[in-house]
């Protein structure tokens, strides 16, 4: 991979972020009512004072100036103050973000660990019994909405079997191994819900990609080398089949983040997803804007990672 490609790809982040920020701000600006409409409606506040406040905060400036000011503030991390949590929004998010990232990361890992072998096996034995079962299960997997899977798991593992806690607790009063064990135990279900959902789609991506690659000429070349089927599959099929899968996974990230919000809400995981929902129920606009913005940044970041990975996997890219 050439450095040039990397720089070019990094520069592409700027228009993407600008586009998203314009979109977000448009939604905000189009929304009826502004922070001072209540003030204006309040008979106790004289209209001159309200007007002075409006002018002071620049609410009557042209829209692009207001956008610019908003953008600069966002970039500086001045995301406002959360009335609900009584703290700065950036601090609040920084507090909650790691939990979300850990849950999503663990779920991705689980998804890959399950989907890669299953997808490769199904793709190399198309239309076998194994393939048909895997394919059907994959369909079931991504047709099950995350909120329903979550409830099903709670029903089975918390209520029927009583193995796992169904509410995530941040304040576990235990130390040492027990502390970690409790943490793992309460993370199992949220990670399973997200991971299996993501894994189900991944199985189908991997399978269809493997199916495409298996019948290419260079795989026949590899077989003719007499290197054995296992090496043919791992070196010449899987490696090449992963290239399009990377892009598909990146395209799925927005859906994964959506799933994370639902999962966090069900299991009350203290991440930014549940923060978003509680902020909405409490009309905490600065938090809502900030979380949406953070999710957008994460998606752009994932796309960036995927593109870099793609170029690393496929030497043809760097020379384009």
């Amino acid at each position: 991979m050439s450095r040039q490609y990397l720089i070019r790809r990094l520069l592409l982040v700027i228009p993407a972020m600008l586009g998203i920020s314009v979109l977000l701000y448009t939604v905000l600006a189009l929304a009826p009512g502004d922070p001072f409409s209540e003030l204006a409606a309040n008979p106790a506040v004289p209209p001159e004072v309200a007007q002075a406040l409006r002018t002071k905060f620049g609410l009557d400036d042209p829209v692009w100036i207001r956008y610019w000011r908003w953008l600069i503030a966002m970039l500086h991390g001045e995301w406002g103050f959360s009335f609900q949590s009584r703290m700065d929004v950036d601090r609040l998010i920084m507090q909650r973000l790691p939990t979300t990232l850990i849950v999503i990361g663990a779920a991705q890992l689980l998804a890959i660990l399950v989907a890669l072998p299953v997808g490769v096996l199904a793709g190399t034995r198309p239309y076998s019994i194994f393939d048909q079962i895997a394919n059907t299960l994959a369909f079931v997997g991504f047709s099950l909405p995350t909120f329903f899977t979550g409830l099903l798991l709670i029903l089975v593992f918390s209520i029927q079997l009583d193995w796992l806690p169904f509410v995530y607790r941040a304040d576990i009063d235990a130390t040492g191994w027990r502390f970690y064990w409790e943490h793992i135990k309460q993370s199992i279900m949220p990670v399973m819900v997200l991971g299996l959902f993501q894994g189900a789609s991944l199985v189908r991506y991997v399978r269809s990609s493997v199916l495409d690659v298996v019948r290419l000429d260079y795989v026949t070349t590899a077989r003719a080398k007499g290197i054995g089927e296992r090496k043919v599959i791992s070196r010449h099929v899987v490696r090449n089949a992963l290239i399009p899968v990377v892009t598909l996974v990146a395209l799925q990230m927005p859906i994964v983040f959506g799933g994370a919000i639902v999962t966090e809400q069900i299991f009350r995981v203290p991440g930014i997803g549940s923060l978003l929902i509680s902020a909405m129920l409490a009309n905490d606009t600065p938090v809502i804007m900030a979380v949406t913005f953070v999710f957008s940044c994460l998606v752009v970041l994932c796309n960036l990672i995927a593109d870099v990975l793609y170029a690393w996997l496929d030497p043809r890219i760097a020379f384009r």
Binding site: P15, A16, G19, I20, L23, L24, V27, L28, L30, A31, P32, G33, L251, P254, I255, F257, G258, I261, V262, L276, I277, M280, I288, M289, V291, T292, F295, S296, L298, V299, V300, N303
Partner: peptide, 26 residues
């Protein structure tokens, strides 16, 4: 097509929630 790519990389659920939150009342 740039716009399509942009929309594809939007976190849909948060945005959906945001829009509904802002426009619900009107």
């Amino acid at each position: 097509m740039w716009l399509a790519d942009l929309f594809l990389s939007l976190p849909q659920l948060p945005l959906l929630l945001l829009v509904i939150y802002l426009f619900r009342d009107s």
